[in-house]
Structures are given as structure tokens and as C-alpha cells.
Write a protein that binds this DNA or RNA. Structure first.
Lengths: 229, 229
DNA sequence: GTCTATAGCGTGATAGAC
DNA sequence: GTCTATCACGCTATAGAC
């Protein structure tokens, strides 16, 4: 197969644009140690960029985080909504419920997201940030996903018409918590199972998570709703 | 009602022993902002103690954390095992399953733990730490609870004999993740529900968590186990 | 057992030369 | 757009007076 060749004398090392290099390094590091746990110097070192350039491109550490959110939030929500829309076409309620939950989970785990190889990496950042309680981070998080989440809750409610909406909400909340915890602390599963179960197996994790959540939601529908509740 | 009075001239402000004051302050602060997010200076300031005293009593920040673990791990595990033992006496499988899961959850939420008013506060610390990925913290966490957790998994397996042990493990893992997330990010429930559901309502959280987890576990028992899996 | 003082280093952010 | 130099501050940890 013939490929387009770059003449040797013209070739320049295709160094990433500085801005992108910084973003990538920051994202990787923060997905491992959160916001508080990583310094700007470390990010600069890792991306092979001068510390001053970080400030030049992003201003503050907080704004750098906001930029990371920027490049992931839209694609991930879009992917979720696509999958949700597909799931909505399933008529069987039980099947549809599974598809909806799966539509919520898959983009969070998926590593084929269009940017920088990583839904999972970005979700890890969100997971850690949600626990760090950093004020700077909190308001960036707040509005990025709540809207989409509400659409999912509505779709789920349509599958379990007898269920109390508050209880559905609790289960969606649990789903997110379980998802976050699995993504960051998968190795605990390895330890507890003596190596029999791999926490890093995202496909297995997705299936277990979907199945468990769907079961918990369906149970709500089967139980008679309590009066006025 | 007559009470024992302390003569005014004898009265000395019953200032807590320095060590305890430091522990309390550290625990409160870390339960809000984790390990990385809190400085020793802040702890010293908050406990009204000199910075040097912190080092005198605990040596390093890491050892201070270990001391916090020390005073909570044993009581909490003991309480869990008591409740687990009580639950074990229930003969009906479904009822027993609920009681077992509840025995796991309640001590984590309970604020009537014998020390410093707080299972919940301590569980928050564990939650945040589990995400921070701090190497210092990680090895303190590792062995404190895994043993007890395995006993719970065994007890649960006894309630759902047809379920695959790996899947049970996943659900216990999800339970812990959901628990942690709820304890730290309860306000998200408030936001998503428009204030209709209170994330800070630990009794409600406990019940929803127990019910959801039990349902997810029972579903495992109902489904035919796949061959060789 | 408690305190002050300080060492030695890393932090986020800024100013200004090139 | 990139770099160096530097500010002002916070950090963990230590040494030694009281």
C-alpha cells in the first residue's frame, strides 16, 4: 500500500500544540490524583512545557480544570442522549429499562470517546472531584450533567410507572456513586475476590451495574406504592 | 432536680486534652475536605493548639490519620458484627438478607457511635480518602475493613444460594460506592429533586440503599446461574 | 508535655524580557 | 507565544527553650 510520505528534510517533530499538551497532561494526572493532589508544576513538567505557558493559556488552575470539562462534557452528554434516544424506541418495558441504564453507563466507561482517548479518564476526574469537596471545582461540576440526568430519570420513570419518583432518584444517585467508586477503586474487587474478579474489566462492570440497577428499579415498580408517598 | 455543682472558684475550663482536641479537629476537617485538602496548620488553629504539639503527639500527618482510623475502626466493625450476628438468627431468607445489608449500612451512617459523635463523619473521611488515591492513606485503609466485608459477603451468599459469588461481590462493591457517594454528595439529591428529597435524611438513605441492594442481590438468586460461571 | 522559631522546600500566580 | 525570575505564602518536619 502506498502512503503519503513526508520528505525527511521537511519533517518537523509534530509536537502537539502547547495548549493541547497541557490539557492532556493535566487530564491524565488529575484522573489519578484529583485536583488538590496535582500541582501546576507537575503538569508543566509532564507536558514538557514551561510553567509560564500554563498560566498564559489558562490563567488559573481552576480555569484549566474548566477547560478539561469543556472538551468532554458536550461529547459525553451527546453520546448519552443518542443512546437514550435509541433505547426509547424499545417497546418492551423491561428491555427498555436495561437499555436506558446502559445508555447512561456506557459513555462513562467507554474509552473510545472522541477526545483524548477517554470517557473513563474523564469520569475518574469527576469521581475524585465529587469527593474532594473543592469549592473551585464544585461549581464547575454542578450544572454540567444535572440536565442530562433529569432526562434519564424521566425515561426511567416511563419504564416503571408505579414507582415513586423520589425512590427512582435515589437509585440513579446510587448508580452514579457505584459507577464512580468502581472506576477509581476497581482494585478493591480484585483484593476481596482474591484475584478471581477483575475490577478493571469495564465490560463486566458495566453489565453488573446495569443489571443491579435495573433490578433495584423494577422492584420499585412491583411493590405497591404507599399512599401519598 | 438536684445536680452536682462545681464550685466556681475551683472550676477550670475543662479543656480537652490536647491530643483529643487535635484528633477531633482533624477528623472534622478531613471529613469535609479529605487528606490533601487540609493542612496541619489548619488543624492546629481549629483545635486551638500549637502547631508543634501536633507533631509532638502524632509525628506526621499520615500518623495523625492513622490515629483517627484507630479510634473508629474497631468500634465500627464491632457494631457491624453485632448486628450481623443478630441478623443471622432470622430464618426467612429474604428478611435475613435485608437485615444483613442493614447491619452493614447502619454503623456507617449512625451518628451515635461511641467516639466523637460520629460514624457518619468517619465514613465520610473513608469515602474521600478512597478517591484521593493518596499513597500515604491507601495502606492505612487497605486492611481495616476487608476482613469484615468478607464475613458479610459470606452471610449474604447464604441468603442467595443460587447467585454467583463474583456477582455478589460486585453488588457489595456497588453498595459501598453508593454509600460513600451519598454521604458526601447528598446535596445532589436535593438539587435533582428540586428540594423534594433530602439527601441529608440518613434514615431514608439507609432504607433506600438497603432495599435497592437487597433487590439487586435477590435478582441474582432468581435468575438461573449460567453454566460454569 | 507544650511552646517558639525556623529550616527547606513546594505552591499558585505575576511581571517583564525576548 | 514562550521563557526566566521572583513574589508571597503554605507546607511538613525538626531543634531546642521552658
Amino acid at each position: 500500500m502506498q502512503t503519503t510520505e513526508i520528505p525527511v528534510h521537511t519533517y518537523k517533530k509534530p509536537r502537539q500544540p502547547t495548549r493541547e499538551a497541557i490539557l492532556d497532561a493535566a487530564e491524565l494526572l488529575m484522573s489519578q490524583r484529583g485536583f488538590n493532589g496535582v500541582s501546576l508544576r507537575e503538569i508543566a513538567r509532564e507536558s514538557d512545557v514551561n510553567l509560564g505557558s500554563v498560566t498564559y493559556h489558562f490563567g488559573t488552575k481552576e480555569k484549566l480544570l474548566a477547560a478539561i470539562y469543556d472538551r468532554h462534557t458536550k461529547p459525553m452528554n451527546q453520546r448519552r442522549l443518542e443512546l437514550l434516544s435509541e433505547a426509547g424506541r424499545i417497546t418492551d418495558r423491561k428491555e427498555r429499562l436495561h437499555a436506558i441504564v446502559r445508555a447512561f453507563v456506557i459513555p462513562a466507561f467507554s474509552s473510545q470517546s472522541d477526545v483524548a482517548g477517554g470517557g473513563a479518564r474523564f469520569t475518574r476526574i469527576r469521581a475524585i472531584l465529587s469527593m474532594e469537596g473543592n469549592e473551585a471545582a464544585r461549581h464547575i461540576i454542578a450544572a454540567s450533567f444535572d440536565e442530562t440526568t433529569n432526562l434519564f430519570v424521566d425515561a426511567i420513570a416511563g419504564c416503571v410507572p408505579n414507582a415513586d419518583r423520589g425512590s427512582i432518584l435515589w437509585r440513579c444517585h446510587f448508580l452514579l456513586g457505584a459507577l464512580y467508586y468502581t472506576l477509581v477503586n476497581g482494585d478493591r474487587i480484585d483484593r476481596l475476590s482474591g484475584g478471581m474478579v477483575k475490577g478493571s474489566d469495564h465490560d463486566r462492570a458495566t453489565e453488573e451495574l446495569v443489571r443491579a440497577t435495573a433490578a433495584a428499579l423494577q422492584e420499585l415498580d412491583l411493590t405497591k406504592r404507599k399512599a401519598g408517598f
